[in-house]
Design a protein around this nucleic acid. Structure first.
Length: 125
DNA sequence: GAAATGACTCAAC
DNA sequence: CGTTGAGCCATTT
C-alpha cells in the first residue's frame, strides 16, 4: 500500500486554492505514467479518509471527475473547490493554467529526484 | 494466485 | 471537438 500512501502524501501537499491533475500527482508520487492509480487510490479512500484534499485532484481536462455511482459526490467536490476560490468555467471546467498546482521540491521536502517543476505554462483548448 | 476493476491520459480518426 | 483504442499497474474479490 506504499504506492497509495505516496499518492496521499502528494495530494496532501496541494495548497489551498489550487488543483492538480491525476497525471501530475502520479508523477510526483513516482507513478509516472500511472494516473489511474491515483484515481483508484483516492477512490478507495475518499470515504474512509477525510484528511486528504481529494477534491483538489482533477483530470487533465480541468474538469472535476468522480464516479457517477458515487451518489452525486461530484457536486460536493465542486462545492469545495468553489469554496477555495476556484472558478468554474461555463462548461463546468477549471482553468488549469490558472489553478494548476506548481509543486516545488522544497515544498515536497522529500526525495523526489528529477522533479524540478516544469509547469508554468500550459495551454489547452 | 488469477481474473476483474478502476476518479486517467494520449494519440489517432 | 467527439469517439475509439491501447497503455499500465496496484488493489480487490
Amino acid at each position: 500500500m506504499l504506492t497509495y500512501d505516496r499518492i496521499y502524501a502528494i495530494v496532501r501537499q496541494i495548497p489551498w486554492g489550487q488543483v492538480a491533475t491525476y497525471g501530475q500527482v502520479a508523477e510526483l508520487a513516482g507513478l509516472i505514467g500511472q494516473p489511474r492509480l491515483v484515481g483508484y487510490a483516492l477512490y478507495r479512500v475518499d470515504m474512509a479518509t477525510t484528511d486528504i484534499p481529494w477534491q483538489r485532484v482533477i483530470n487533465a481536462k480541468g474538469e472535476v471527475s468522480h464516479a457517477v455511482q458515487r451518489h452525486g459526490s461530484d457536486y460536493r467536490q465542486r462545492s469545495l473547490l468553489e469554496a477555495e476560490g476556484i472558478e468554474f468555467n461555463p462548461q463546468g471546467r477549471i482553468d488549469l493554467k490558472r489553478y494548476r498546482w506548481q509543486p516545488s521540491v522544497q515544498q515536497l521536502g522529500q526525495s523526489l529526484p528529477g522533479v524540478e517543476g516544469e509547469w508554468g505554462h500550459g495551454s489547452k483548448d
